[in-house]
């Protein structure tokens, strides 16, 4: 199946470590994913997700520390509320929520990171490319 472009926003303290851990354990997962490391899942503004789709991502992974594990105490709790709302907004706007995976991955969960990526890639590949969003400019010139 054709490769898709998945952009992953991962928190510095847990999920980036998780991805690192997956690499260290030589776990195999599809190469469709590109990571953007941010300091905390609380820093991941929904506009990042929109921007990713605008610039050609077919899917997005958002990942942070498990509840209670946030390096900044509560960043992920705040993020959780925001994402809960944003996900409903996406659904209400008719954007397929299956293109975005929200996840908690700790620094030791290399296996979970592999699973999150594999599942997301599989799902997004089945959905196909998301040209529909990027192409919304309707470049007609008339």
């Amino acid at each position: 199946m054709a490769e898709t472009k998945i952009l992953a926003f991962v928190c510095n303290w847990c999920s980036y470590g998780g991805a690192d851990n997956a690499g260290g354990m030589r776990l195999k997962y599809p190469a469709d994913v590109r990571l953007v490391r941010v300091m905390c899942s609380g820093r991941i503004d929904p506009v990042f997700i929109i921007k990713a789709f605008e610039r050609g991502a077919d899917g997005v992974i958002v990942s942070g520390c498990h509840p209670g594990d946030c390096h900044y105490t509560a960043g992920n709790y705040h993020a959780r509320r925001r994402f809960a709302v944003f996900r409903e907004l996406m659904i209400f706007m008719g954007i397929d929520p299956r293109r975005v995976t929200f996840s908690w991955v700790s620094a030791s969960e290399g296996g979970k990171w592999r699973d999150v990526v594999s599942e997301t890639v599989e799902r997004v590949r089945a959905l196909g490319p998301f040209e529909g969003y990027r192409g919304l400019t309707g470049r007609q010139h008339g």
Binding site: I50, K51, M93, T137
Partner: peptide, 20 residues
Amino acid sequence: PLESSAHLRGNMAWHMVRAM
């Protein structure tokens, strides 16, 4: 990060961000 152009892509982004 928002596109200021009045095309559907920019408009979707603006109204989603505003709603958020």
